[in-house]
Design a protein around this nucleic acid. Structure first.
Lengths: 259, 259
DNA sequence: CGCGTTTTTGAAGCCCCTCAAGTGTAGTGG
DNA sequence: CCACTACACTTGAGGGGCTTCAAAAACGCG
């Protein structure tokens, strides 16, 4: 079996092998980790707030989200989990989940034994390093969401999230000719963006009218990528999609001035 | 030298030893890491956006912040860094900083060589585990900020941030009789909370009028903690201040009430 | 086919922003 | 020691982005 064979089947391997050189043995080990595959129905929880984590959950197909609900019923989605994303890499370090994981679509995930997982990371430095990278990217995404909610308008937030999802989809799924699968409903988008569904709708309509974006039936069509990028002020650097093994020259991007 | 001797002097040791049992050797190693101490003047950058990290920066005294500036000049603070917090634990994994670190007050920080740092974590599992814990807490804080900006009102955001800072200060500094040092100006608070300084001022005034909180000259006086906690809907679980070594007895400090 | 959910649109209102101006307050240099 | 400066704090008035409430149309699923 050649390493490439895994990339089509296992989204984690596809994601990691883009930034770190994994040996064939690494790939086999990662694949072996994903033997116990389970399912979650759309709109059902995978992990609940307060659970004591004992296994690692890795999304294999479908979309899920981290979220937190306040007493007044308001819900904030704090992360979108795509195939190849872990729900709880911190198993064993923290006592309890301080948020929940819910399936957005029907979802399949690998249910990884903690001991097996720790053996894997202990034995394979490349994998440890790759998982380190993945958590740092997750953190970068989290920060960019905070920036969106803090200082961006509704229009900019929608544009930025679409740019982000487009990039993330491209990193696990080669295709995408201006079009990609995006199963979030407008209420979902609202809960991720700190807006109401009504307002998300108005913004999405306007973006369509402006010929920038079309969202229909779980598909996003980016009609004008430069315009979308401009609206969002999107700089994909925070996703760190460059290989971290080779020290290539990197586009410095637009500099921010020192304070 | 007894381990306790470090706790007063080194905020990192003080922080970590509350949740993980560190041996005397661990403490000595951590202390040895902090030999090269540097300074940053208030309102100056410690690390700039786009820098290639090569050393680890650990705040020893003073307050700093992570932040990101957009082209329109709007600034979002994405994290507040207190003594014992690392600026860039990810040295060596990521290529470039995707945000900046700025000093809020005059700040001293340890400037740790990367090789020395990696040797430390490679040789001392307890420390590795403790640093893992610290990054997960940072992530939890980040998520709670996202929830604040997403679904909380200005009044609730201010209350929640004050509750958070009060807990974090208590974790590195024993004292606090309803009063603690908090050098953030109202413009700082605004940039952290996704509000304007004007509105922060109105909210702070109202909280004072309601007898909940007083902010004056870099000091916060919590006048009515139950009321503040209620307004914020604050649940300190996400700070994971409990000991994560199940069988070690660690000074529990003042107990946290469950939500 | 019927029902729940999503999408869409309108109208009214409020939370927070913007603009503006005046009052502290600390640091600087003459 | 006191101008002078810079910035934080404070307060008022007006405006706008987003919310809330409401309801109809469209979609998808059992």
């Amino acid at each position: 079996m050649e390493p490439g064979a895994f990339k089509g089947a296992n989204p984690l391997i596809a994601k990691l092998s883009r930034v770190i050189a994994l040996s064939q043995d690494d790939c086999v080990a990662l694949q072996a980790m994903c033997q116990d595959v389970r399912q979650a129905a759309a709109r059902h929880d995978i992990i609940r707030d307060g659970d004591r984590p004992d296994r690692v959950h890795l999304i294999l197909s479908g979309w899920a989200c981290r979220y937190k609900i306040l007493r007044n019923g308001k819900r904030q989605i704090t992360a979108l989990l795509l195939p190849g994303d872990f729900c709880d890499l911190h198993v064993g370090v923290l006592d309890r989940m301080d948020h929940a994981i819910g399936a957005i679509t029907a979802t399949t995930f690998a249910y990884v034994d903690r001991a097996q997982f720790e053996e894997l990371t202990g034995m394979r430095p490349a994998i440890t390093r790759a998982l380190w990278w993945a958590t740092l990217v997750d953190e970068g995404v989290l920060r960019s969401w905070l920036v969106s909610l803090g200082v961006r308008t509704a229009r900019e937030r929608v544009a930025h999230l679409i740019c982000e999802l487009r990039e993330r989809m491209r990193n696990i799924d080669r295709e995408s000719s201006g079009q990609f699968a995006m199963p979030l409903t407008q209420p979902d988008l609202a809960e991720a963006l700190g807006l109401t569904a009504v307002h998300v709708n108005r913004v999405v309509r306007q973006l369509l009218k402006d010929g920038v974006l079309e969202i229909r039936r779980g598909q996003v069509a980016v009609l004008d990528l430069p315009a979308l990028t401009e609206i969002a002020e999107f700089d994909p650097a925070y996703l760190h999609a460059q290989s971290i093994d080779k020290h290539q020259s990197v586009d410095p991007g637009v500099g921010f001035e020192a304070q």
